[in-house]
Design a protein around this nucleic acid. Sequence first.
RNA 1: GUGGGUGUAGCUCAAUUGGUUAGAGUGCCGGGUUGUGGCCCCGGAGGUUGAGGGUUCAAUUCCCUUCACUCACCCCA
Length: 429
Amino acid sequence: MSMETISAIRGFKDILPAEAGQWLFVEEQARRVFHAFGFRDIRIPILEKTELFARGIGETTDVVEKEMYTFTDRGDESLTLRPEATAGVVRAYIEHALYAADPVARLYTIGPMFRRERPQKGRYRQFYQIDAEILGLDDPRVDAELILMLVHFLGAVGLKDTRVEINSLGCPACRPAFRGAVVAHLQGREEMLCGDCRRRIDTNPLRVFDCKIESCREAVTGAPRLADFLCADCRAHFGTVQESLGLFGVPFSINDRMVRGLDYYTRTTFEVTTDVLGAQNAVVGGGRYDGLVQQLGGPDIPGIGFAIGFERLVSLMRAQEDDFRRTPALFIAALGAQAQKIAFELANRLRLQGIEAEMDYAGKSLKSQMKRADKFGCRFALIIGDREIAENQGVFRDMKNSSQTTVRLDLASITEKLEALQRGAKDLV
RNA sequence: GUGGGUGUAGCUCAAUUGGUUAGAGUGCCGGGUUGUGGCCCCGGAGGUUGAGGGUUCAAUUCCCUUCACUCACCCCA
């Protein structure tokens, strides 16, 4: 009699040990780089009040309108699994009045986000983001600094063939005029637009710039350019961002059709894109959100941040799993009951010292144990048989070149031998 | 939410115009050779052909439904 099996739900996936090594590597690199840039870890809840996202991201955005995992908790409170991290980070910043001690906060967090979309390449319903936010600084150099850090991080994990695109969305002082001009432009070309874009004229006209349909792209050629509408402040800001990026030789291009889908963005926005991800070409998205803190009930404090799509990043790395595999330093092969006893104790004493040791518990043949050692990728093996026990010795074997030597069967001798070998000692003698 | 593609062993895939007991590689388990792994040889386990229904003497194969996966639209990381 067998029970029916249960699978993970749609769009949710397991990260198995073979892949997890790579994930750990990416996380370590992120922490290392971010710490150097003054960022500190913040851990926030996965579940928040629905209102946080409605107010933060925008009621009419696709994310809030149709992609959130929202449910009513006992007590009739509407809760939502976070679809992104910024709103929660800002909420925590306000709630704990972090600005009171120091308005400037550099925060990062790594964790799962949830959006109920149709899964496809590089898109899952639970997906991980590496999220970084700088609050309390509106200096354009900070925008460049954040992008610099991002590019540096991407380099640290070995990512290639990516592009950085930047744009400025203006601010509440200049965007309305631009928006008005775009609407005027589009209204003369409605028959060229797809159904979605016709609706967007009223709801979110700037999004037409993002549409991939050919006729829509034609409709926006010759449309007003945001760059021409930026107010003096925004223009200066954007200029300094570019200048500062140039200072560090960060390659970028300006994409004045890049409009972000979350309402809170102002001024600088940016994306890191690639060709090899199919339709999901954005690995990183981010931008400035100078009005968000206030929008969420806090003081008037500016902010900027980005989110890296973890799965997309990892799939771009195209690295071999072996590169990140944890391999035990030593495999202890025991022949016979007495040897097993010694092996068991040795293996665990080594582990207590932080040395990864593996052994066979099934009393298999030496051949079988060597196979196992090889499979684990163990660099060295310690073979213990009756002959050796009699002399309190084991055979130390280098799995790579099959050279071997004997070693006393005590913890100190074995540790010493291992360390000598790992330092690169040529001879096993 | 819409459209296309694909579902056969743990994994990668076969199986003629519908036709005997659904095969192979790999992996797994055991054994052989050998006091020392990778090579070689032998054996074994493992399948309700995603599920349900239909057509037929006969369905992995054809039809319908459903589910899953996948790619794309939409949107985004």
